[in-house]
Design a binder for these strands. Structure first.
Lengths: 104, 104
DNA sequence: ATGATATATAACCATTTGGTTTAGTAAAAC
DNA sequence: GTTTTACTAAACCAAATGGTTATATATCAT
């Protein structure tokens, strides 16, 4: 049994972020998703597997089609991680100033 | 010349996220950062290089030491990307419901 | 039944990743 | 000036990543 996929790793790939973007507009089948990319269907299939493994996408089998839908809740972890540092970048306390103050 | 590093890829690694967390508390030298991890100093050096290449960390040479400081502004891209989908997960329109509605 | 369609699975491959150890180099301490 | 110290760079390695093509499987259409 594989260790549960990491959502940070899942969104590291630009193709997978683009897939999320597509699914935000509407649920799509795997094939219609694949039409948007310049790569083979198995490649998209693999990306989709990674996305489902970390909970970012839910796939439901309907006949011979797989209907794919994004589960944006899984992005909360990412948003929260990044946002915890927002006060740092929105304040005056960013990296350069830290360093400059330090060397004063 | 290497293509500019991607911040999404940079934060995909848990060690690098931990480094960001450390630098949020205070600027540190490369060595003091390395003390927090169970890996060699060159390994941390490499992580730090990736972090600086995508702008997440700023390093300033001071004598023989490298003072490392996080530049949280570089996280804005990540926060914004994730947040654009917040309305989806905070509303009732999440994946499962989409699919269930569809198959009604 | 036969064939087309939608997808998964397998086998394969090149490249990247994340680590290692072993030098090097530059600054500080003695 | 010799030795630590802080780090970088190089050479190496196993494993993971992201793609391919070819094949299998299940469903739908005829």
């Amino acid at each position: 049994m594989k260790a549960r996929r990491d959502v940070f790793q899942a969104i590291a790939d630009p193709t997978r972020r683009a897939i999320i973007g597509l699914l935000a507009k509407q649920t799509q089948t795997l094939n219609t998703v694949a039409d948007n990319f310049n790569m083979s269907q198995p490649a998209i299939s693999k990306h989709m597997r990674i996305l489902t493994e970390c909970g970012l996408v839910v796939m439901i089998k309907q006949g011979r089609e797989r209907h794919c839908s994004a589960n944006f809740k899984a992005l909360e972890e990412v948003a929260q991680w990044a946002e915890q540092y927002r006060s740092f970048w929105s304040s005056r306390l960013d990296a350069l100033e830290n360093l400059l103050n330090e060397s004063d």
